[in-house]
Each structure stands twice: as structure tokens, then as C-alpha cells.
Design a protein around this nucleic acid. Structure first.
Lengths: 135, 135
DNA sequence: TATATACTGCACCGATTGGGTATACTTTGT
DNA sequence: ACAAAGTATACCCAATCGGTGCAGTATATA
């Protein structure tokens, strides 16, 4: 039960961008160096973040990346979901066909897992990238 | 970010055992049939649960499994940890050598993840197998 | 005391996912 | 036109997942 490495890299990249003056462009290469992330892998992650509307990308000579919204409007949950999709906890929860007991709705175990997932999502959503630094 | 299938099976097996009269032995074969779990895989999972002190096993002719403690004393967290080890969320949290920025302690991201993990663990620990049925 | 029944331990296996790279291409400022 | 950026797709190797095979051990009962 863990988040993957790409998500951790994404946290760092977004956190880095959040620390810059609003709208400032930074090339992936620089982020990769500072945050010690393999460049090509970072580029891939940044595309997911762009697709999710978390960062904006600009091509060409002085292109690069910048946040697509205020740091305060970006939560850890947003980043997790951008990179690895929504949290599932258990196959059955999202795809009833996967539950070989077919009782997603009635089973107390599934009810508990559902509730735990909600708590986890809320917790992740409670951290935004403006407040993260201020501890 | 999800629990694995073995953990889900373990939840069901423990939940099933928790619904029986205290101390009653049940063969794995029966649990497998009722809960629709591949027998050999279930046996493997039950060994993990036994090693963790959640179930007791008895060999030989009328052998089988029973809970090693009161359902109330067994939480979903216990079962998760028995089957797939402690929740990590992020490599760096457990093994600082894995963090290629080497700042587990100072990094606000890691602090947040640490706190989120705590919340998750508490949440999992708040569900015990005596109360699960009573909703 | 032989035997069938139930659990144990370890090794293996195919499929999927994770972490990352290669190659070829497109956009854009100078 | 060309160099510096990002884009798109496909691929690669290793680890993990979900499960099976096989050989062994304990034990109640005939």
C-alpha cells in the first residue's frame, strides 16, 4: 500500500513550481536537476500534470512549465489523481464485476473500505501547495 | 494506491471466522468455498494471519482455523499489516536512503505524507471485527 | 499402526505494473 | 533556418501480484 515514485516526483515538481513567482516559466531540465528526478521521466509526469490542468506547458525556445492555478488551489489529492488516477483501496469498490462475492453494497467490509477511502481522500485534499511550506 | 487482493481475501476470511461461535474450527476448504477464494491462495494467506497471531491453526484430521483472539481485538489495520506489511505511502518515509533528496526530516512534503499515513493507520485501526457486522 | 485429512514450506510461473529510456516529431524565439 | 524547448508513442527490464505445484508434517480415527 503505497504511492508510486512518479507521484512523489510530481509532489516535488509542483512544490518547486509553487515556490516561484507567479507565472514564471522553468524548463523541465532545471527542475530535474534541482529535484534530482530523471529528466525523461519527469517530462512524462509533467504531461500528466498538464493534462490534469495543474501545470501549463510552453514549447519552443524559452518555453517551460508553470503552475496553471494558484498554489492554494492545488492539493496533494489533485496531484495523486493526476499521476496515478483515483485511489481505489480495493478492486471491488470501483468495479463491482471484480468482486467475486458480488455484494459491494451490502458487505460491511466494503462499507468500511469505502469510508476509509473517503477519509484518505479528504486528508489528501486538506494539504494545498500554498500552505505546505508554512510549517 | 490500493490494497492487494490477498488483503481483501484476508478481510473476508477473518470476518467469516469472527461470525462463528468462539473457538470453532473451520477447514480452509470451507472458507474458500463460502468466500469464493482460491483454496491454495487462501492457505497461504492464512499462514500470514497465523504468523501475525490473528488466527490459530490446527493440523490433522479435524483440524482447521479459528481466531486467535476476540473479534473486538482484531482491527482492519492488523489484517492489512499481517498480509502486506506496514503501510508506507512513500519509499522515503521508511528508508531515508531511498530518498534521493535526503531530506526526509525537513521536507514539508514528507511531513505531510507522514501525517497522512498516521491518519490512515488510525482509521484502519478504528474498525474491529466485532463491530463491523453491526451496521 | 495405517491411513486419510488437514495444515506447512518453498519454489515456481505467467501477467501486470513500476520506473525509466529511445526515437521521432512539433512548436517557437531569434 | 536552426536551436531550444515540449510532445507522442513505443519500448524495455525488474519487481510485484495473484496463484499453483510439490513434497512434507501433524493428528484423529479405524
Amino acid at each position: 500500500m503505497k504511492l508510486n515514485q512518479a507521484t512523489d516526483y510530481a509532489f516535488r515538481a509542483v512544490y518547486y513550481l509553487a515556490g516561484l513567482p507567479k507565472g514564471q516559466l522553468v524548463e523541465a531540465k532545471l527542475i530535474a536537476e534541482i529535484e534530482k528526478i530523471p529528466l525523461r521521466f519527469l517530462l512524462k509526469i509533467l504531461r500528466s500534470l498538464a493534462a490534469a490542468g495543474i501545470v501549463e506547458s510552453y514549447r519552443g525556445v524559452s518555453g517551460g512549465y508553470t503552475l496553471a492555478k494558484e498554489p492554494r488551489e492545488i492539493t496533494m489529492k489533485d496531484v495523486v489523481e493526476a499521476v496515478e488516477g483515483p485511489i481505489e483501496l480495493n478492486r471491488c469498490l470501483t468495479d463491482p464485476g471484480e468482486c467475486n462475492k458480488n455484494h459491494t453494497a451490502h458487505c460491511p467490509l466494503h462499507q468500511a473500505l469505502f469510508s476509509i477511502r473517503q477519509t484518505l481522500n479528504k486528508e489528501l485534499a486538506s494539504y494545498n501547495f500554498a500552505d505546505l511550506g508554512k510549517n
